[in-house]
C-alpha cells in the first residue's frame, strides 16, 4: 500500500473535495498553513500536515475526516 506522507508519518486527514463548500474554516484553524484553498479547489499540503485534526473539528459540514488507516496515494 502506498500512503500519502504527512510531516510526522502517514497522512490521516482526508478532505472530500466534492462535498466541500470552500468556506475556509479549516484553513483559518490550521496551525501549519497546510491547506490550500482556491475559489473551488481545496487540498492538503502533505508535508506540512501534522494530523492534529483541528480542521476535522472545525468543518461545519463534515467534509474533512480523520482516517486512522492513513490516506492512500492515488
Amino acid at each position: 500500500m502506498n500512503y500519502r506522507q504527512a510531516k510526522n508519518g502517514k497522512l490521516m486527514i482526508e478532505i472530500l473535495p466534492d462535498k466541500c463548500d470552500f468556506c475556509g474554516c479549516c484553513v483559518g484553524v490550521c496551525p501549519e498553513d497546510a491547506i490550500e484553498l482556491k475559489e473551488a479547489e481545496i487540498f492538503i499540503i502533505d508535508e506540512r500536515c501534522t494530523n492534529c485534526a483541528k480542521c476535522v473539528w472545525s468543518c461545519p459540514i463534515e467534509v474533512i475526516h480523520f482516517n486512522k488507516e492513513g490516506v492512500l496515494a492515488k
Binding site: C25, G28, K54, W57, S58
Partner: peptide
C-alpha cells in the same frame, strides 16, 4: 477573510484557536 493566510506569510500570527 477567515483563512487569513496573507498575514501568516508576512510573519504575523493569524491562525484561529479551533
Amino acid at each position: 477573510g477567515v483563512e487569513s493566510r496573507v498575514g501568516r506569510w508576512a510573519g504575523l500570527e493569524t491562525h484561529v484557536d479551533f
